[in-house]
Simulated assay, not measured.
Amino acid sequence: MIQIQFAARSLRWAEYEAPLRAALDAHGLDYRMENYTQDASLPPESVDYIVYAPNSHLQDFTAYTRCKAVLNLWAGVEGITGNRTLTQPLARMVDHGLTQGMVEWVVGHAMRLHLGMDIHLNGQDGIWRRHVPPLAEDRPVTILGLGALGTACGTALAQLGFPVRGWSRSPKDVPGITCLSGPDGLAQALAGAGIVVLLLPLTDATENTLNAATLQHLAPGAFVLNPGRGPLIDDTALLAALDAGGVAQATLDVFREEPLPPDHPYWAHPNVTVTPHIASETRASSAAKVIAENIRRGEAGEPFLHLVNRDAGY
């Protein structure tokens, strides 16, 4: 019998138990699955798989000597890759729900800013404001990060007519997107960008990717969208660019501290929109199928999906 330890905050167990059991049952797997608490868990030496959220109380993996893989419920793994007790294979979450949710958030806010919708939504005061936006083909978009989420968002925007450039640390080839990579490619990717979308993983190398120097490459009055990770942006530099008009508007979904403190300057800034880390939530119905498929693969001796490269950090 396969022994599965679910380790996340208590509310997640209530959300995930039924979808996970349904997905595991669909594969015909013989298993036992229990929720981890600080007072009770499966015997660590008996566990085959850990379904995991990095904010779980389970932080020491030393005793899990039989564990074949740790299966992350989140796309982000920066909260766990540095854990030296974790020696088992680690898989991050890549699933349809995460990807589709991110595409909808990015496309929705990109179009809102591109069309200048805030001017009309916030200006119902009897003044006839005639604002005609450029066509999409005249507003270059840059996607920083060409993983599954960045590729999907860039492809969707390209299909709407935006010229899309994408930047990644290693070379990529995505149809419809001009792909650039490496330190030299970053400046080229940002040059003249009218919209910048940050979807990089968070590592030591990507922190503050958007800073005082790189912001200078954008088109005057550019828009910044960050649904990736808060520390990808130097907050002080972005606020200065907003105050100076170099950046016209920033829509931010992720922050260095969450929830964003009520006294943070972003809340009061007239050209900042804050959304509460909702750009793409892991949905139990679709994530459960990815987890179950990886467990099936592990039992069949097949390669796991979406394994994390520990050296790269994602």
Rank of each mutant, 00 (worst) to 15 (best):
L186M: 07
I4E: 04
L252N: 12
G101D: 12
P171R: 13
L58P: 05
G123M: 04
H277N: 09
V274I: 15
M117D: 10
N208V: 00
D39P: 01
Q159N: 15
L242P: 12
A212V: 10
A191C: 08
F162M: 11
T282A: 15
H306K: 02
T87S: 09
D125Y: 07
T209K: 04
D204W: 01
G221D: 05
R129H: 06
V224D: 06
L242K: 12
L190H: 01
R9G: 00
R297D: 09
W167Y: 13
Y31M: 15
A287N: 13
R296I: 06
L121V: 14
D173F: 04
T99F: 03
I291N: 09
T178C: 07
V141F: 07
W105M: 02
T273C: 14
T87L: 14
L202W: 03
T62G: 01
R297Y: 07
V132L: 01
I50G: 07
V254G: 12
D48C: 09
V70C: 04
A136Q: 09
A22V: 09
A18F: 06
I278Y: 04
W167S: 01
N55L: 03
G313F: 13
V51H: 06
D95E: 15
I2C: 05
G150M: 11
G82S: 04
P220I: 10
Y16S: 05
L144H: 08
P134Y: 10
E137Q: 12
L307G: 11
A148F: 03
C153S: 14
V196Q: 01
P220K: 07
N309L: 04
L218F: 06
G298I: 13
F255C: 09
N122I: 01
I127W: 09
R229K: 07
L144M: 14
D235R: 06
V77C: 08
L232P: 08
Q38Y: 02
Y52G: 04
P259S: 05
I233G: 08
A240W: 08
L180C: 13
K68C: 04
A244T: 10
D243H: 11
Y16I: 05
A69I: 07
L210V: 15
C67D: 10
V272F: 12
Y49K: 06
V47A: 02
A268E: 12
I143F: 05
S286P: 02
D125M: 12
G185I: 08
P227I: 03
R21Y: 03
